[in-house]
């Protein structure tokens, strides 16, 4: 399928979600249940996308697990977005370098 179609569908959907409430629906949502669902959506969505996909995103399960462990640890310690992201990246490099030295990769 033409990739431009995908990109168009993606961009248009995302934009409409952002622009409609800002221009047309100026009243807040009344339903407490719906507001609650929307409140949890970012967290459940990011979690579902990250795990277990991060484990299979690198050459070896070990380096993916290292990235996960380092990121969770640093995020728990309250490190900034960029520090966490760069450190999980470094964890992959380090883990894969060690495995290559050990002849495991």
């Amino acid at each position: 399928m033409n990739i431009l179609l995908y990109i168009l569908a993606m961009a248009l959907t995302t934009y409409l979600i952002r622009v409609l409430p800002l221009t047309i629906f100026r009243k807040p949502i009344r339903s407490r249940y719906l507001r609650s669902v929307l409140y949890y959506v970012p967290y459940t969505c990011l979690t579902a996308m990250t795990f277990p996909a991060i484990l299979s995103s690198t050459t070896s399960l070990v380096s993916g697990a290292a990235a996960l462990a380092v990121a969770v640890f640093l995020a728990y310690r309250g490190k900034s977005l960029i520090v966490v992201a760069l450190s999980s990246s470094a964890a992959v490099l380090a883990a894969e370098a060690v495995m290559r030295l050990a002849g495991l990769l």
Partner: peptide, 25 residues
């Protein structure tokens, strides 16, 4: 090389984790 690409690829996951963990804590 693949190892560098792997490392860069997990950055997005790292960012997601950094967004989720503090409020979950």
């Amino acid at each position: 090389p693949v190892s560098i690409r792997n490392a860069l690829g997990v950055m997005l996951y790292g960012m997601f984790i950094a967004i989720v963990v503090p409020p979950a804590k």
